[in-house]
């Protein structure tokens, strides 16, 4: 999936994550976690979502407020689809 513009999704409310995806030559992931102990888990969830969509080059920033993995996944995917200018998710390819 090619990132062609900046896409954002989510909020900074409790249990949510605010995700920004921008054009970038490499894959760069920045995590700002409400609790630093959970940052590795957030990173893992975000990377899995990026891999599932085939995003290989982008600057991705995730600011999360005690969000579940499924929320991280949803917000990263939403931001990526918006940043790729796609209105439809590739449902058949998603697990």
């Amino acid at each position: 999936m090619e990132i062609i513009k900046t896409g954002v999704a989510g909020t900074l409310e409790s249990c949510d994550a605010s995700v920004s995806v921008e054009e970038h030559g490499l894959l760069e992931l920045v995590i700002e976690s409400a609790d630093s102990r959970f940052a590795p888990r957030v990173r893992e969830a975000a990377l899995a979502a990026l891999a599932e969509l085939g995003v290989r080059a982008a600057r991705v920033t995730v600011r999360e407020k005690s969000a579940l993995d499924c929320t991280i996944r949803a917000r990263v995917m939403t931001a990526c689809l918006r940043a790729a200018g796609l209105e439809k998710a590739p449902w058949e390819a998603l697990k």
Binding site: L68, C70, T71, R73, R75, M77, T78, L81, A89
Partner: peptide, 15 residues
């Protein structure tokens, strides 16, 4: 609408 759809989809898949 896209964000809500993906959030519910993701929650249903894992919760």
């Amino acid at each position: 609408k896209d964000a809500a759809r993906l959030l519910v989809w993701s929650s249903l898949r894992s919760t």
